[in-house]
Amino acid sequence: MIRRLPIRMPFHYAAGASASRFFEVLRDQGRILGRRCTGCRRVLCPATAFCALCGEPTDEWVEVGPGGELLSWTEVPGRGAYALVRLDGGDTAMLHRLLAADAAPRIGDRVRARLADTRAGGILDLEGFELVGEEEVT
């Protein structure tokens, strides 16, 4: 015997000290910030209070992007394409939507962040990454 039981659960997440500024600047200024680690000096994006790689605290805001490099991508039928992107000036990969993936992207392609028209202070303030056309690469 099988029972199906759906439930609706409400959640609420605090972005915290560092990510709050990341989202605030993204929302209000349309700029993407990373944080530099005091230990390994890498720039983490999205910004976090401490380094996901070596554990040390981060202490310096660094603007990254909006251009970047496509590290990997996949396409989910019916849901669109997703990309792992390393933004220029950053050292970590960010997961987001890959826009207009029908252009057959290749790993290593140049991409650029596209901002959403209306922004509310969340990761969807970035609409996603779009491939930068050949003509734009000079």
């Binding site: 015997m1 759906p6 609706r8 605090a14 972005a15 605030e24």
Partner: peptide, 28 residues
């Protein structure tokens, strides 16, 4: 210092459970 930012959302979760033999007889 920035204002704390947070996101709120509702999550619809769907589960299916097998009763096991004893509970199947009980429910019947």
């Amino acid at each position: 210092m920035s204002q704390p930012i947070s996101v709120s959302h509702e999550m619809d979760l769907a589960w299916r459970y097998a009763s096991g033999e004893a509970m199947e007889r009980f429910c019947a």
